[in-house]
Design a protein around this nucleic acid. Structure first.
Length: 711
DNA sequence: AGGTCCTCGG
């Protein structure tokens, strides 16, 4: 095998490995009985070192005059292909004087495993047209799989015809691969036709079809398929369990999930990293974090996917700190995050509005080279947007080389939440120009943008014309946007009429939108009626009582205020205290209205007094009507000064450089008085102040707010 | 001597 040996480029063992065996003969038996068998074993266990040693042995012991042993050559190609050394496999292949079908199939499988599906299709053409070889069932299994990987259904369909005529479709491997090709290329009908009309086939085909259905959102059909599979009494393999757990996760069907878990234990299925991750995911999506943590804690073997799955389970159930905490535990075991991990971490930071944490993660993303993954870019946009830094979100957006619909939606709704309707609509225009198809989420952002700009006609145009054209059925959330749109422009009666006449099953969010509008437009008559509806829908919602009591107070109906307080006492509803927080360097400072817990409390109060004195000449009048009537008049102003957001902003002004923006997060809606005060504070201090309240973002700058006094 | 299915984000 002389030419073959000479062609072998990478034979010298890696720098830190042992010297070639000729100097250490005891490492390898003097003669190898069955090198083919050993090479197969090395390939199957991905043991490149052993494989190379055997290769070396073959070179040294080979008779120079002997011609190439095709069996040995194929085994070597297989070895390097399996060990992710495709270029070496290719080199050996190219140097072969003669190749057979096995040589081709081994090499093709190597390319396929390295994600180079198109290369496989090219090889196939050469094999047939140049070498004139006849493809067999092995080749077609690989070809169909390559078609799945590259989305080349047309080539796959031609091969489908061939395997049908030649009878190769009777091989289960071929049939499974074909079914999988159709399933993954969203031709599920064809997949089911092959599955049902060609005799034979096994559990793998069912796995493929159910997965294909799930991936394209046909959950009901996937469930039906599961039923058919169960009725055929097939033995499930571990992929079936993974598939069915995926189905449970999608349906959030905990009962089925537990049942399948039980069956899995009974049947003594080996739980590998794939299966355990699917289980963690299922429990997470079904809201059972404790079960997910249980599965995770018992794992013998964990990989990055297991870690990301448990992290995601915490995140999806609102345990953002726990999700972030997983990162350091991972670090202890020297596991490095990947793009999915970063996406979960960034979204957890977004959930906490932890800008500092998000910034740190952004740095890690840049350093570790994951910044160009779409899911990471999307998560960065989401994080910056939810943490109140919409400019940074936009920078990430503009910097992205590859965008998907989630990217566009994140930017549109980000601008909308920040009250930047114009920017949101511009991004929407760019999205259309870029050829990205909007979906129903896009239109929620677009309609909210119309609302914040008061573009009533445009809003209706998007709802009735454009959405129809694209084929998106308006849902509850779109109709709610219309309620907001009408309300915002002051057409409260129209909004109320829209809710009364449209055949929509309105939820509490829609009613609250109308209620808010009544509050902002001081239409307390309608407001009180709407509030009654909201209270009936959720008797425990503190916000509604607060709003209602506020409306009574503003219309000086103290009897109403008393009534509401009595109602709240009876129903044992406690008023949630106002809490605001602000991040200064590495620390989050928390302020609760009316308390003096902060160590610098007296300086802060002094600062608030100073600020209020500065803005009074600009027209600030404390809104004492908003304060409950049983408080002494001279105390009312004090009450207002100690609102948590005022304390947090004052502290931010004390502790940050003069040009730094201040970001405050508040648990409740910002009150009228604070809103008016902060506008003027932004003017006298010349600062950008961003407040995220329970509903939205307020960007205060130069005496104005991005919400245009509507929130 | 060679081949197929699967887990983590919105």
């Amino acid at each position: 095998m002389q030419s073959f040996i000479a062609a072998m480029p990478n034979l010298k063992l890696s720098r830190n490995s042992h010297l070639p065996f000729v100097f250490k003969p005891k490492l390898v038996p003097a003669s190898i009985d069955d090198p083919i068998k050993l090479l197969k074993k090395a390939a199957d266990t991905k043991n490149l070192r052993t494989g190379k040693t055997i290769h070396a042995h073959l070179i040294v012991s080979g008779e120079p005059s002997k011609s190439v042993d095709i069996f040995q050559a194929n085994s070597l190609i297989n070895l390097y292909a399996k060990c992710d050394q495709v270029s070496i496999a290719r080199h050996l292949f190219d140097c072969l004087p003669k190749r057979n079908v096995v040589s081709w199939s081994a090499l093709m499988a190597g390319y396929l495993h390295n994600g180079m599906a198109l290369e496989v299709l090219g090889l196939f053409k050469t094999m047939v047209s140049v070498d004139g070889l006849c493809p067999n069932e092995y080749i077609f299994a690989t070809i169909f799989s390559s078609c799945s990987g590259s989305g080349r259904v047309e080539e796959g369909k031609q091969c489908h015809g061939y395997v049908l005529k030649s009878g190769l479709l009777s091989y289960e491997y071929v049939k499974n691969a074909l079914v999988h090709m159709y399933s993954s290329c969203s031709e599920v009908e064809s997949a089911m036709r092959v599955l049902n009309t060609v005799p034979g086939g096994d559990i793998l085909s069912y796995n493929s079809v159910i997965n294909g259905l799930l991936e394209h959102g046909h959950v009901r059909e996937a469930m039906e398929m599961l039923g058919m599979m169960v009725s055929q009494c097939m033995d499930w393999d571990s992929v079936t369990y993974i598939t069915v757990f995926g189905l449970c996760a999608r349906l959030k069907d905990l009962r089925l999930g537990l049942q399948v878990h039980g069956q899995m234990l009974k049947n003594d299925i080996k739980c590998d990293v794939f299966l355990s991750s699917a289980m963690i995911d299922m429990y997470g999506k079904c809201g059972k974090v404790s079960n997910a943590a249980n599965v995770f804690d018992r794992l013998q073997e964990r990989n990055i996917v297991s870690w990301t799955a448990i992290m995601a389970a915490y995140f999806q159930n609102g345990y953002f700190e726990d999700a972030l905490g997983v990162l350091s535990k991972m670090g202890n075991e020297d596991i490095l995050p990947n793009e999915y991990t970063f996406a979960v971490l960034l979204n957890s930071s977004a959930g906490l509005s932890a800008l500092r944490q998000g910034d740190l993660l952004h740095t890690c993303v840049e350093k570790s080279g994951f910044k160009d993954y779409v899911i990471v870019g999307n998560a960065l946009i989401n994080m910056y947007s939810k943490c109140g830094n919409i400019q940074a979100a936009n920078e990430v957006f503009l910097d992205m080389t590859c965008r998907d619909s989630v990217t566009w939606n994140a930017m549109i709704s980000g601008f909308s939440h920040h009250g930047l309707g114009k920017e949101a609509l511009n991004v929407f225009q760019d999205m259309l120009a870029a050829g990205e198809c909007p979906n129903s989420i896009t239109f929620v952002g677009v309609l909210s943008a119309c609302a914040s700009l008061g573009l009533v006609q445009e809003g209706f145009y998007y709802l009735n014309q454009l959405m129809k054209q694209i084929g998106i059925e308006p849902g509850l959330e779109h109709h709610t946007c219309i309620v907001g749109l009408l309300s915002r422009s002051g057409q409260l009666d129209q909004a109320e009429k829209y809710m009364r006449t449209m055949p929509v099953k309105w939820d509490i969010v829609a009613w609250r939108t109308l209620l808010n509008a009544c509050h902002v437009h001081r239409n307390y008559g309608l407001g009180k009626q709407v509030a009654e509806v909201v209270v009936r829908m959720d008797p425990n919602d503190v916000g509604t009582y607060t709003l209602l009591s506020n409306m009574y107070a503003k219309s000086r109906r103290w009897d109403g205020v008393v009534k509401i307080r009595k109602l709240m006492r009876e129903r044992n509803i406690k008023k949630e205290p106002g809490v605001s927080w602000v991040e200064i360097r590495n620390t989050t400072h928390i302020f609760v209205s009316d308390d003096n817990m902060h160590p610098e409390s007296s300086q802060i109060h002094e600062k608030v007094g100073e600020l209020l004195a500065k803005i009074k000449p600009l027209g600030y009048v404390p809104d004492i009507a908003a304060v409950l009537h049983d408080v002494e008049d001279e105390q009312k102003e004090d009450y207002l000064s100690y609102h948590s957001e005022k304390l947090a902003i004052a502290y931010g002004l004390m502790k940050t450089p003069t040009n730094a923006p201040i970001r405050v997060i508040k648990n409740l809606r910002i009150c009228d008085d604070c809103h008016a005060a902060v506008k003027l504070i932004s003017k006298v201090t010349n600062r950008l102040i961003i407040v995220r309240d329970a509903n939205r973002f307020h960007q205060f700058q130069d005496g104005r707010c991005s919400c245009a006094d509507y929130w």
